[in-house]
Write a protein that binds this DNA or RNA. Structure first.
Length: 706
DNA sequence: CATAGCCGCCTTTTT
DNA sequence: GGCGGCTATG
């Protein structure tokens, strides 16, 4: 009955695609085609007569949204369905219903560095010391509150102890500052949308009419705010389709609540659940390793990964002396695979932290292997780009003081700190914004005549720009770049290596592309869009270079051959994520995600020494290595450099040797896998008969030799 | 008021 | 090892 477009779907996939009555949850493991189910479902809905306009699909990144749009188009699903991330959807809703949401529609979206400035100001305004109240910590706490839809009033009401009360003060002040700047941070986008839908039934029902079908991919990584938004949007019709895999939840630290997917059936009691257990991506050997690993997570619904492919190659676990050797081995293997005919884009290297890309990059350059670092925000954090964007931000939203302060003396035009302080002071006393203060500079007595003149020139320039800020973005950007003096000041110090001018050109080109693609190009829309740009969005799958990325950025992707480096205790699992069992389990899921990206080849490695902050340190193998159920040689190979202290390890009387049987009072009997001599702080890694592997500090562990 | 140089602080993952 | 902020100097 269905046409050939759907003929390659499996039975369960077909069920999910064509299910049209009520709520639907697709519980699916890695490589089972869940994103594909959503794409096909969009096409199937349209086939059945649903207008594309009435469909809303939520993806995890903008990149994923782009891809889904293309794939849906290839299936003949006509354009018009709304496909975007949660954050982009919220921007659209908030702009459309700005009045009801109590904000202005040209709001700025503040990124991490903007937020950081605001929070520092808030801590200072609250007359608190930033050593006792570190801004980053405060921001983290506020973010968590917003993700849980706790606004300032609610938090003030519940805050009882000293810390909470202080935090409440900072939170209140922080929101005041954002308000004054007409700015929303990432979390505000969600919180304000959730509140808008909650308190304006008319808006809620209008959107419910508009989006008659809501589809959400990667549902395991939604937070409470996103859950509430979804719930509101479908409250009239319950046409929600969510897909996800609890084992791939890796954003708990950002507020993702795994209970959303686990409790789906409670939220929608008449939900249909479709399970997709077959894996069409990886070889059986790779899946076995993934399965062995994830089985160590206690808080988990057991789920089998069913391979559809033959065993394939063995998973390789390699030990290297240091990170340089590790990187060189990756490069060698990449070259070898390439010689065997694999394309560079079919491989990928994953690591836990961005800083680890450095060595890899150097080695890849040396070996002339084309690569791409998947870091989208990098481009937008360059000074010259931020400077030009700051001009545009001020034009779009004159209240944006962060942007204004950035450009007021960039390039240098003789308006220094003293002058700015005087204007800020005046503005504060008269309850006007900084930009209004600039307009009234002539009336500020403390300013010198020369300063007043310079301010007048600057204010005049902004007014000139303001005359045509409607319509296309690229021409305006170009004009601002030249007339602001930025172009000239950059030209003076630009070199071929720095390529600052080239970067600005690229920005203007990107703006031109936006102008062509957007239905209704506008400056605020453009700025709001690029603020939501993420690392993963920078991944160019079509260019034949080896992508290097964090494990987080690898989500949703797949490659023929995958390298995962730095399987060391403190790095993966990361030391900042080992405070409790939940965090450790998330680290394990992170590695699980990395492993299951691989189709045919998987190369896992660790270095016995790693340079951290300029210091070469002895490492401990990650406990996850032992959990993969793969034998690997832990001592260094014959041909590798032999470190003297290894011999000391073995000779120190009373200490432990690899292979030694030991007994622990609660874990029982186990085998010593690694001994790290650090005097009285020595650490021993033991694999216990229970299957667990633990890193123990010798002096506390109370181990007895068997 | 601009600039250079130094000190001290932080350093996971990201929409 | 990198950046932001502060200070000293021109």
């Amino acid at each position: 009955m269905h046409d050939t477009r759907y003929s390659q779907l499996t039975c369960s996939q077909e069920k999910a695609v064509f299910h049209t009555e009520g709520p639907l949850l697709v519980l699916a493991g890695p490589g089972s085609g869940k994103t594909r189910v959503i794409t096909y479902r969009i096409a199937a809905l349209i086939d059945s007569g649903v207008r594309p306009y009435n469909i809303c699909a939520i993806t995890f990144t903008n990149k994923a949204a782009d891809e889904m749009r293309q794939r849906a188009a290839a299936l003949g699903a006509s354009a018009g369905a709304h496909i975007s991330t949660f954050h982009s959807l919220c921007v659209r809703i908030l702009r459309r219903y700005a009045a009801q949401a109590g904000i202005s529609s040209n709001f700025s979206v503040y990124d991490e560095s903007d937020q950081s400035r605001c929070i520092k100001q808030a801590v200072k305004d609250s007359e608190l010391d930033s050593t006792n109240f570190p801004p980053a910590r405060m921001l983290e706490a506020i973010s968590a509150l917003k993700n849980n839809l706790v606004d300032v009033e609610a938090f003030e009401a519940e805050a009882e102890d000293f810390f909470s009360k202080t935090l409440a003060r900072i939170y209140a002040r922080y929101q005041q500052i954002l308000n004054k700047h007409s700015a929303l941070d990432f979390d505000d986008l969600l919180m304000k949308t959730a509140f808008l839908l909650r308190s304006h039934p008319a808006v809620c029902s209008e959107l419910g009419d508009r989006f008659k079908f809501l589809l959400i991919d990667e549902y395991q990584d939604t937070n409470h705010a996103q859950y509430k938004i979804a719930k509101s949007l479908v409250s009239q019709h319950n046409n929600i389709c969510a897909t996800g895999d609890p084992d791939q939840s890796i954003y708990r630290w950002r507020g993702a609540d795994i209970r959303n997917i686990l409790a789906f059936e409670k939220d929608w009691p008449d939900a249909t659940i479709v399970k997709l257990e077959e894996n069409f991506r990886s070889t059986a050997n790779i899946l076995q390793a993934a399965d062995n690993l994830i089985a160590f997570n206690q808080k988990r619904k057991e789920k089998k990964l069913v391979p559809t492919k033959p065993p394939g190659k063995d998973v390789a676990i390699k030990v290297f002396d240091d990170e340089l050797e590790e990187a060189e081995a990756v490069a060698r293997q990449v070259t070898e695979l390439a010689e065997q005919g694999a394309s560079l884009k079919s491989m990928a290297v994953f690591y836990r932290v961005n800083a680890m890309s450095r060595v890899l990059e150097e080695v890849f350059i040396q070996n002339r292997i084309p690569y791409q670092i998947v870091r989208g925000v990098e481009f937008y954090s360059r000074k010259e780009i931020r400077d030009l964007l700051a001009y545009l931000k001020v034009l779009a939203n004159p209240s944006d003081e962060i942007a204004l302060l950035r450009i007021i003396n960039t390039p240098a035009r003789g308006i220094g700190k003293t002058t700015i302080d005087k204007i800020r002071d005046y503005a504060a006393r008269n309850h006007i914004t900084l930009i209004e203060g600039l307009g009234r500079a002539a009336q500020i007595d403390s300013l010198s005549k020369a300063s007043k003149a310079r301010i007048a020139v600057f204010a005049d320039m902004l007014n000139q720009f303001n005359k045509d800020i409607t319509g296309q973005v690229a021409p305006l950007a170009e004009r601002v770049f030249v007339e602001s003096g930025l172009a000239e000041s950059l030209r003076a110090e630009d070199t071929k290596e720095k390529g600052t001018l080239e970067n600005v050109n690229e920005l203007i080109n990107a703006a031109a592309r936006y102008d062509q693609q957007a239905e209704e190009p506008s400056l605020p829309d453009y700025l709001q869009q690029i603020a939501l740009f993420s690392d993963a969005d920078a991944y160019d799958a079509s260019s034949d270079r080896v992508p290097l990325m964090t494990l987080h950025a690898a989500k949703g992707l797949e490659f023929g051959n995958v390298f995962i480096v730095g399987l060391e205790d403190g790095l993966l699992p990361h030391e900042r994520s080992t405070n409790n069992e939940d965090e450790l389990e998330e680290e394990r899921r992170l590695l699980f995600v990395g492993i299951t990206r691989a189709k045919a080849g998987l190369y896992i490695s660790y270095a016995r020494y790693r340079t951290v902050r300029g210091q070469m340190l002895r490492t401990i193998p990650s406990q996850f290595l032992y959990e993969l159920g793969i034998e690997f040689g832990e001592r260094c190979d014959e041909n590798q450099y032999h470190h003297e202290d290894d011999d000391e390890d073995r000779q120190t009387p009373g200490e432990f040797v690899t292979g030694q049987l030991v007994r622990h009072k609660s874990f029982g009997v186990g085998t010593v896998k690694e001994f790290v001599d650090m005097g009285e702080n020595s650490i021993v890694v033991v694999k216990f008969k229970t299957g667990q592997t633990k890193s123990l500090v010798v002096k506390y562990a109370g181990l007895s030799k068997v």
